[in-house]
């Protein structure tokens, strides 16, 4: 464990808590993409299959349980409890255009052609594009609530911090995982446009409103 990875995990944790607070306080899921949350649930389920077979640390297990638990709770809030406020018309990204290529790529490019490893690789590739339905929804509605912007900033920062973690681990431990790094770079790049808007607008107290 290193400070970059710890900050990354905390940023990820903060993003999930911000999202839950937004939903619970406003009792609304307006502006939130249920499809992205379903993709994140798929990512966590696929990545944490080893939750019961390999024990890394208490921290690792607790975080995995928390991430899986909260993402399914988020889906429950979107599609059941606050279903009336879910904006399905604007949440229209075709996720099959993500899942099929990512699934194919996981078969072709992986560290080891073994079931658990291919599923792990699938979760890494899927995570890098899982935010697209959410970003697409914001571009369609033309705006994002400030709290949703904070959620996205924390979520984007988490993988950016993981990139720092991988640089650190390369020099400190000689650890290098090309698949995770490449997917992490793609994932972070997808947020750059949003980071720019966040820093130039939200940090000055303005709302993010894209030219619709």
């Amino acid at each position: 464990m290193n400070i970059f990875r710890l900050c990354g995990d905390m940023s990820h944790l903060a993003a999930i808590i911000i999202l839950l607070l937004k939903m619970w306080k406003t009792r609304s899921v307006a502006g939130i993409s249920g499809k992205s949350q379903i993709l994140f649930a798929t990512v966590f389920t696929a990545r944490y299959l080893d939750l019961f077979t390999s024990f890394i640390s208490i921290y690792n297990t607790c975080m995995k349980v928390f991430f899986i638990g909260t993402v399914y709770f988020t889906i429950y809030l979107i599609y059941m409890k606050f279903k009336a406020t879910y904006d399905s018309n604007h949440d229209s990204f075709r996720v099959e255009f993500l899942i099929v290529p990512v699934g194919g790529l996981a078969f072709l490019v992986n560290h080891e052609f073994a079931p658990l490893e291919i599923i792990w690789t699938f979760s890494i590739y899927l995570e890098s594009v899982a935010i697209l339905p959410q970003l697409f929804m914001i571009s369609k509605t033309g705006e994002a609530e400030t709290i949703t912007s904070h959620y996205l900033f924390a979520l984007g920062s988490y993988r950016a911090l993981y990139l720092c973690n991988w640089i650190y681990r390369y020099y400190a431990e000689g650890f290098f995982d090309l698949i995770a790094v490449v997917a992490g770079v793609v994932q972070t790049i997808l947020y750059c446009d949003f980071f720019y808007l966040y820093i130039t607008k939200v940090m000055k107290g303005k709302k993010i409103s894209l030219p619709a």
Binding site: D9, R47, M63, Y162, G174, D177
Partner: peptide, 10 residues
């Protein structure tokens, strides 16, 4: 590249 058995990151 060094690949550990399994993955220790979240």
């Amino acid at each position: 590249p060094v690949i550990e058995e399994g993955h220790d990151e979240l």
